[in-house]
Design a protein around this nucleic acid. Structure first.
Lengths: 229, 229, 229, 229
DNA sequence: TATGAATGAGTTTTCATTCAT
DNA sequence: AATGAATGAAAACTCATTCAT
């Protein structure tokens, strides 16, 4: 079913070996991306051990063999997924124009962004969770991982410094601690939505609490950072 | 408390029947507990799919067969482990004597307890994380789970009510939201210690940050709850 | 069996506790019969390999241990069940008063009895089927089995002889062949009721076809035996 | 017919692709057939529960894994075996050229064929028996099973109708009943050969009684169907 | 006599990975 | 580059039977 139509349809006009509109029949980049997308879904849904190579391959436009061809092993594919997903959030964080805002507004913006990102990218949250189950041993092999993360630290350091200079923020808070605090609250309501929902009969990650939680988190961070008067 | 008392009893007080030297050959309760203990470690370390029944059995004082005899299946054992760890924390929460304290002190105590519990019982944190990977479908089958959790909600409701009555706490915070906030911060630094450590070169769950984090969390919660003056 | 001392106890002295109204608390015969009854049902329903010792024991009034105590093994129990069930039908056959009837009537009676017995005792039919799957190797170990069966042969021989003498029956039919013919038709509609039902949408062993089949079988046997005129 | 021609073809005619010396390394059809053949023997000899997947695999040209690859489970394989053997007999029945014969001759031919088929294909008889032990629940899942069986009914209906029209057969016999009668006698002597042999010291399925039984069955059926004069 | 607990050997099934075409 | 077939090692689970009390 899928297979028959698949081979023909997308290139419908494209015969086996020719190039049409710059799109090759065998597009390695496209194939890789396709595998990566499906793998992201599967690993995020099932975990590293729970995911099945067969299941991933089946949902792909290609075959199991290609998966090994491009990523070497199940673990190699998982690593690639992790890298991908981490690079996404760090890239977006970079795009925030915090320097143009006052420190309180900037912190508000940063927390809000973090909240929204977690709320929207549940695959990311789940994959981070999964990677922690495995002691982060896969992400540790990534070369770019550490460098990439230093950028956030810098962002927060600047933010705090400006607030302290303006007499608005306290000066005894470690930037990584602050980041941890923000992450905690944004992450937890997504990561533990299921047990929480089962325990209290209410999904903490659902749309009904989104606005309320966003405000609660922003406010608590600001209250915490505000200098005592 | 259970654990403490248990470890002592069998040796000291004369047990019901034929025990000599404290070790009965046929002791089903002991066998079950032994399996459960090991399984808690293994599931917590490896996840549900990652854990191996053989590995669990091997570390046990008994055989794989008994594991099936008492718990029916790998999943049955996992469920029993989950029930156990959840019941432990809920039982301890019940023992807090918050009613005797003023509301601020009580909240401080509650947050502190939650922090310490998560800091000390990492198996619990990991198992909850793992269960969320599985969409909480195992804990949902527990009959006692929901009832058990209602106790914490009650505790927090009382606590808030007393603070509001005393004019110290704001009155617009939902108790489950407050609980979520507290849990988030206590949970995250343990659950995500590995990726966090890999990202920033510092283990957020390590002893060097324990006191600092404890204070940060207690303080942020209190600041958040305090009535604006 | 193994433990000599044990074999003596149950009969001789009244067991440990009290006797009420001539009914002993522990009645070995009753226990054995109970086990045998349940085992008959289970083996008949599930086959020798399909039946579970645990399942049998559970439905019993006693425990698995007793099952081994009285019957030695699963196979021993199965053999006992087989013996039981075969002895039942042969005993009933003996009770037929065929000598008082004319040969045609007697044959009619014999076929009818065989039909009714199979129709009513489905456990018997299933157990015979099961035993054939196992090449009859269990029933072959029975000492009484062969002797018991010779009685039917005698019955049929007499019957034929009388019919031949009276000029009503043909004289070229082997008694065992005739018995086989009769058995075939009575047995098959029960033994293969399920595949037959699935194949043709009609249960050949059901009450709706009972009378019709009975007549068909009786008639076909008689027509077959009748001397050509 | 299938079998005969099949065994010959692959060697003689040039097969599609790279075959040399008739044995392709990768021949899924051959692999499946090989597994099915061995499984037919094992299930027929040991029953569904009694058969061992390992034992089947071992006698195969391939590995246990392939058995699961093609048939999914032990039960799936068993189902495939059942389908196969049923389709074989029904296919052969179709090939009988009964229309060209007179009704009596045709009935004689049909009974003879049924007799010979059962006498020769003991696997079929055993598998049907085994399936009945399981309440026919596996064959019931076959989609083609019911349709396939309707063909025999048609055959017999025609046969009876022609005999009735010719004034040779009685007109009060249900075709399925007649089929049951024929099957009973052909089936029973094979299916119950072992208990019968043990009981009467004579194997009813052996070569010494084959001709005699064949005649007896043919004759009894014809006598039964013949119109009274 | 009775019983729940215990066991070892075996049985089915799964899975990541590689091979032949 | 692509694919269905094939595989070995390991995993979960079952069962008849025996032991300790």
């Amino acid at each position: 079913m899928k297979k028959g139509s698949k081979a023909a349809t997308p290139e419908s006009a494209a015969p086996s070996s020719t190039t049409v509109e710059g799109r090759r029949k065998y597009d390695p980049e496209e194939t890789k991306r396709n595998i990566l997308d499906i793998a992201t879904q599967e690993f995020s849904a099932m975990g590293l051990t729970g995911a099945r190579v067969d299941a991933i391959a089946e949902r792909t436009n290609t075959t199991k063999r290609m998966l090994y061809y491009y990523f070497g092993s199940k673990e190699g594919l998982y690593e690639a997924v992790l890298e991908q997903v981490y690079s996404d959030i760090r890239a977006l964080e970079q795009e925030l124009q915090l320097a143009e805002m006052g420190p309180e507004e900037a912190l508000r913006e940063f927390v809000g962004f973090t909240f929204d990102y977690h709320d929207k990218h549940r695959d990311f949250v789940r994959l981070v969770t999964i990677e922690n189950i495995h002691g982060a041993k896969y992400i540790e092999q990534s070369k770019t991982f550490k460098t990439r993360n230093s950028s956030v630290v810098k962002t927060i350091e600047d933010l705090i410094a400006r607030g302290v200079a303006a007499g608005r923020f306290r000066d005894d808070v470690d930037p990584i601690d602050l980041h941890l605090m923000i992450s905690s609250m944004c992450f937890h309501r997504i990561a533990n939505q299921h047990t929480w929902g089962a325990a209290f009969g209410r999904d903490p990650s659902g749309p009904r609490s989104r606005t309320r939680h966003r405000e609660m988190i922003v406010e608590s961070v600001l209250r915490f950072m505000r200098r005592d008067t």
